[in-house]
Amino acid sequence: MYEFEFTRPASVAEAVAALNAEEAQALGGGQTLIPTLKQRLAMPTTLVSLSGVAEMQGIGLQDDGQLVIGGATTHAEVASGAVGTYPALAALAGQIGDPAVRNRGTLGGSLANNDPAACYPAAALGSGATIVTNTREIPADEYFQGMFTTALEEGEIVVSVKFPVPEAANYQKFVQPASRFAMVGVFAARFADGVRVAVTGASEEGVFRWTDAEAALASSFTPDAISALSVDPDGMIGDIHGTKAYRAHLVNVMTRRAVAAAV
């Protein structure tokens, strides 16, 4: 790692101020950022830890029925804390990384990084969540802008995320055998007014909505409804773990499984 200053502000305001410094970078749980720093692939002068910001912690249900989760809430806390309110989201959080990673990694960190194979982007997009930052609220549909790219401005922090809770939802993750990130992960959610299907891991553009499947599932929320559908292998990721065609195939399989398992 290159040397950097470390600060641990206690409030969002202090964190935002600290991030104004040149080449300052926010540190969530560090489960991606610290290995990245170890490879010397980033060179921040200041690392601003968000773990001490109390207002970014915790899980709560809003009056409008949306589940609000602080950006600094760990995967482990979501996995145990959202079981009663949004079980599909809790189950997804419980599949991220491994137990030790889940004790450090955070929702905000994952969404800010937007790894194309991360799980949380599928939940946020598949739920139609709203990403609440220190300056604004960003709908998930506008937030994810391609691999490792989001709508966040320099110095902008994911303070919390508001998840509408669907009637039924499920996340199916098919892991890449080495990293255990999603080779294909599909989050399918049925709401009173429609269906959302978000796919992570598969596309060169990062997480995306499979709108053809959403339309078909809106009329019949059954695996059979999408049996004949497929995503275009062009634009899927092809690498040593699987071809584009394989990932395209898995998108269909995992979507059907998610629909079948959604409760």
């Binding site: 055998p177 080495a178 990293s179 690498d239 040593i240």
Partner: peptide, 21 residues
């Protein structure tokens, strides 16, 4: 699971536990 893979230019594609299972 395991396979150590080079590309045609001799770059190691399975260069960490992220890609070597």
């Amino acid at each position: 699971l395991e396979g150590c893979v080079y590309d045609e230019n001799g770059q190691l594609l399975s260069a960490s536990f992220m890609d070597y299972a």
